[in-house]
Computed example of a mutant assay.
Amino acid sequence: MTETLPALDLATPPAVRAAIRSGAYRGFTNLLARDYVQGNLMVVPQAQADDFAEFCARNAQALPLLGRSAPGAVGIPALAADLDLRSDVGGYMVFRDGVLCATPQDVRSEWREDLVAFVLGCSFSFERLLLQHGIRLRHLDEGNVSAMYVTTLQTRSAGPFKGPLVVSMRALRAADVERAAEVSARYPMFHGAPVHIGDPAAIGITDLSQSYGGHGLTQLQDDEVPVFWACGATAQLAALHAGLPLCITHHQAHMVVTDLQIEALASRTHAQHSQQQGKQQNGH
């Protein structure tokens, strides 16, 4: 569950990042800066960065690339001028040799000159668009987040990166399912259309109450249908399979809050965004 919001300006990305950086806010970010893009964080050594970028390209629905840092850089200017990825996320997971070692609130002490950060599209952004189309998201009404699950669907491997697809689940009223699928399909940078609708067992989920990470709305009401979207947490499992000497990701629903406006990014096609990313990376 999200924490009660403190008396802070949590509507604008710079204010949200400042509140997280100072320790004034430690809750989930899904209800903050609602008009702005949020993303998954993935930090890997430079030696594995190109393989990870290729893994994202081969699994673009789960891992749509919003930005990539220069080696050792603590920010990605194209996403926000003042972004410090070491302190502005609020919750991190640190893996060594594929083992979770720590869940700190900042990773300044872990940062190295050879680390490359990736920010990947997040479904928190398309939730705003679903709401604008009149689709009820009960987990938001209840102050919760969507649950995540590990499926039996497999990703396309690249270098050492491989593993199962992770999905996020939203409990939608049956009357809203078709519209939600149509709306989300327009936004590939926020995972696009659902990968599955209905019976969780068909994609290897045997118990909705057992979510990946142990958080999120997991109970369905009688008039609801589970709808599953590809999820950026797929990258976390791929990193575990890769057994990297060091890997840093966000923790649970503590996302990177960017200055990108959802409506502006949503208007881009995936090809247009990929072209822009290429220009940015060539400029590093």
Rank of each mutant, 00 (worst) to 15 (best):
T2P: 03
D9H: 08
A11C: 04
T12H: 13
P13H: 01
I20S: 03
A24Y: 00
G27P: 02
L32N: 02
R34A: 11
R34V: 07
R34S: 06
G39Y: 13
V43K: 07
Q46V: 13
A47I: 06
C56L: 07
R58N: 11
L63N: 02
P64I: 03
A78R: 13
A78Y: 09
A78T: 13
L79E: 09
S87T: 15
G90C: 01
V99L: 03
L100A: 08
A102D: 15
D106Q: 11
S109F: 10
W111S: 04
F118M: 03
L120S: 06
L120W: 05
S125H: 11
H133N: 15
D141H: 06
Y149K: 05
L165D: 08
R170H: 05
R170A: 08
D176A: 06
R179Y: 12
A181F: 11
A185D: 14
Y187H: 15
G192K: 10
P194Y: 09
G204M: 12
G204E: 12
D207L: 00
L208R: 03
S209R: 12
G216Q: 08
T218F: 02
V225G: 05
P226D: 07
W229P: 09
A230V: 10
A230R: 04
A235S: 15
A235L: 06
L237K: 04
G243P: 04
P245W: 02
H250S: 08
H251T: 00
M255R: 01
V256S: 00
T258D: 01
I262V: 13
T269D: 08
T269W: 14
Q281Y: 15
